[in-house]
Design a binder for these strands. Sequence first.
DNA 1: CGCATGTTTGACGATACTCAATGTGTGTGG
DNA 2: CCACACACATTGAGTATCGTCAAACATGCG
Lengths: 254, 254
Amino acid sequence: MSLSPKIKLASVGNINCSTCSLSSLCLPVSLNNDEALRLDDIVEKSKPLHKGDALFRQGDPFTSLFAIRAGSLKTYSINEKGEEQVNGFYFPGELVGLAGIDSGSYPMTAQMLETTTVCEIPYTRLDDLSGQLPELRRQIIRSMGREIRYDQQMMMLLSQKTAEQRVATFLLKLSNRYSMRGYSSHSFRLTMSRNEIGNYLGLAVETVSRTFTRFSSQRFIIADGKELEIINEHELMVAAGESHGPECSSVNIV
Amino acid sequence: MSLSPKIKLASVGNINCSTCSLSSLCLPVSLNNDEALRLDDIVEKSKPLHKGDALFRQGDPFTSLFAIRAGSLKTYSINEKGEEQVNGFYFPGELVGLAGIDSGSYPMTAQMLETTTVCEIPYTRLDDLSGQLPELRRQIIRSMGREIRYDQQMMMLLSQKTAEQRVATFLLKLSNRYSMRGYSSHSFRLTMSRNEIGNYLGLAVETVSRTFTRFSSQRFIIADGKELEIINEHELMVAAGESHGPECSSVNIV
DNA sequence: CGCATGTTTGACGATACTCAATGTGTGTGG
DNA sequence: CCACACACATTGAGTATCGTCAAACATGCG
């Protein structure tokens, strides 16, 4: 259940919301310096959590939102039949726990995929503060709106796309998210297993594996275990079924 | 694009948020009388919209949230390839448009399934008011949290359930929503077509139709066109794959 | 170094899609 | 009020995609 010996590192580690390199991706995005400092005041930085550790578990009382500082995690829920369902993967700057806001308890477990540090944002204090800072209030709303849109894109993927399209879409989206965080968009390390990818995409592990193999032999990607390189982004986009999107011979009307 | 000749019916029709029969399902749920009156002040009731009419269209600038007063609608988006994807169905007391909050424009179209009236809630005014009424602010957040959880349940359905389980789950969920609104939970009229159901559930029309037929011949339901009767809820729950849920010989531990 | 966990590959089969034809209802206009 | 057209719904036949089962292989952790 949350971070048991809570350690406020802000004063020690010299990091706070207004100077954080992730502020442009995180809650402080539209806050001025003073507002960010007030937000920082209620935020508690965690010590590093390790692979497999849970940030919160399904059913735990809802107390906080968490912003990821470094690392990555997955969220999953357990259905009636005891099966695991991966709901999402989260990277630095992203907010975890929003789904618990209205229900009093977290509807899923958040579990580290690697060594990860997070910022804990106690919700009652955030709620108070958001009454005083309209920009913060709007930013919370925006974060939730974005989550809703992501989920709906995911529903589209699950209900309309083939296995191949799903995997291609997944890889391109990861690529995008990495690049937004300043990492290479064409070469990165998958922090999740094939099993977790398959579960997330609604596919059997074997199907994910076969699709990776196929994309490799088509020279769209180079997949060496968890290391992944995108060597033909264009073809991967075609495979994702988004060919009619951003290209068309480099002419972009609109 | 929204409701062109906006007509404020509250004073005429003698309905307002504090007396609305849907207030327990809608934004006013946790507001006191005075607060509900202030909310009512910014809400504009629509004249009836007809089947096929659009409340807003994908790409329209985001201006308002809408609460359904009577009737029902579907939301859908058009993907890159021009295919329609039904995102959800909405019934009285439910809030439509939340997904547009952070993006400046509605990411989908909302289209009436039957004659429907809605309450329009201009977002800038709602935002202002939510700065003054903490309970309203929390209620908006709760509505969004609920939407996120619904979407995640939907993702679970799409990635893990068979056609039969999807259709059964869909019917039971409709049943629940109708019963929460004071309608019969075992006998109701489907306001959407088989095509729309299939699209929503990620199934071909034919599969939906076949599943209806199978459930009928198994005497779980009686389906006569759009009229639907659930005559064996228990078996339908089993078919939905939720058998280990609320029953177990009527003993409910926890 | 060894066991456990994760990954790949193959063979087979089932579920659900596509195509096609027929049946049913709804709304429109004569 | 009826007839017609159109959209919707149902049913059947054939097939493809993806899941299941199984086994070999790789990886990584203790």
